[in-house]
Amino acid sequence: MNSALKKRIGNVLSWVMTFLLMLVICVPGLWVVLTAFRPNSEVLAKPAVWIPQNFNLNNFAKIFGFGAEQVAIPVPAYFTNSLIIALTSTAIALLIGMSGGYAFARYRFRFKNGLFLGLMLSRTVPGIALSLPVFMIWSRIGLIDAKLGLIIVYVALNVPFTVWLIDGFFRQIPKEMSEAAQVDGCTRWEAFWKIEFPLAKSGIASAGIFAFLTSWNEYALASQLTRSTDSKTLPVGLMDFTAQFTIDWAGMSAMAVIIIIPALVLTFLVQKHLIAGLTFGGVKG
């Protein structure tokens, strides 16, 4: 066998492997998306209908309360809750992450290493292990079934990560840059916003997107701490589609698509930012 042929077979083989792997990864997601656009009857048909016959937006109209058929699930309320909770908790986690990350990167203070280690260690505890204590405390102080309750939990969940990531980005920016700006006439605050913030921007954006995705997709804790339309989020709401005897697969899938879309968009943004990276031409290269 000559080497050209060998190489070709190797190539083909690697393509086949890649294809199989991608299939395993993509098919469940693809199936959810397909299901979202088909009537439940077709989804449940036996034998399975592989190629969609009816392709429409009825399921979406249904879960948002338009059209002929309606479901008794308050999807718009869940959507609003999810949005409020994810956005607020992300904003707070970012604010804390920026101040904390900046402090860790720039200042010396007592117990700095211990504090940092503590933050990181807190990430090793699975969130669900804390659900019982959190539930007990929250029920005493009336934060069960309140958006604020979830927001606090998600901030706590995200802060170690945002601090860590943003610290890394600020650490890469030589402190001389802010000093140069201060000599050039800036206050410390101006130097931060005009020089250090723009340079750490992609890091801060990435941290924000990760924090948002964590809050947006979180299920385990939300399912414990929420009860009603006051605070239930989309992932928890998904379970509303399971009735005692039936599961509305089509409606559930439509809702899943609604959950996935913002996550997908944000993931693309994160990629762009992470790949963009930073060019530190200001320093000796």
């Binding site: 840059m177 000093e179 140069a180 700006a181 200001g282 320093v283 000796k284």
Partner: peptide, 10 residues
């Protein structure tokens, strides 16, 4: 001030 690493704004 001129810094050792120049500290130009990248």
């Amino acid at each position: 001030m001129v810094f050792q690493n120049y500290a130009l704004y990248p």
